[in-house]
């Protein structure tokens, strides 16, 4: 099971590198979405590993609310870009 987690941490590094390299704000948003989903899944795996339901519930909440936060952020950034281009 630890190996699975190590592999997930390795996968988490891919969007981190992407966020570090790409200057485009939408690529960074994508990396953010990827990272927030991956971290919540890792939290869920850890919850199963430790048989701790409290952490599991928090993982589910972060997984669902993280997407809402992303939508809010994307909406505002989109409007900023519209004003800049227009």
């Amino acid at each position: 099971m630890t190996l699975v987690l190590i592999a997930m941490i390795g996968a988490l590094l891919i969007p981190m590198v992407e966020a570090l390299q790409d200057e485009d704000i939408w690529q960074r948003m994508l990396a953010f979405a990827s990272i927030s989903t991956k971290t919540s899944v890792i939290i869920l795996v850890i919850a199963v590993l430790q048989d701790d339901w409290m952490i599991g519930v928090v993982g589910v909440l972060i997984l669902s609310v993280g997407n809402a936060a992303l939508m809010l952020l994307a909406q505002i950034i989109k409007r900023v870009n519209d004003v800049m281009d227009g």
Binding site: M16, A19, I25, R28, M29, A31, F32, I35, S36, T39, S40, I42, I43, I62, G66, A69, L70, L73
Partner: peptide
């Protein structure tokens, strides 16, 4: 920087 802060928040929560 704010998007990066979001990434930092996700990892901190983890």
């Amino acid at each position: 920087a704010l998007i990066m802060r979001g990434i930092l928040g996700a990892i901190a929560a983890l």
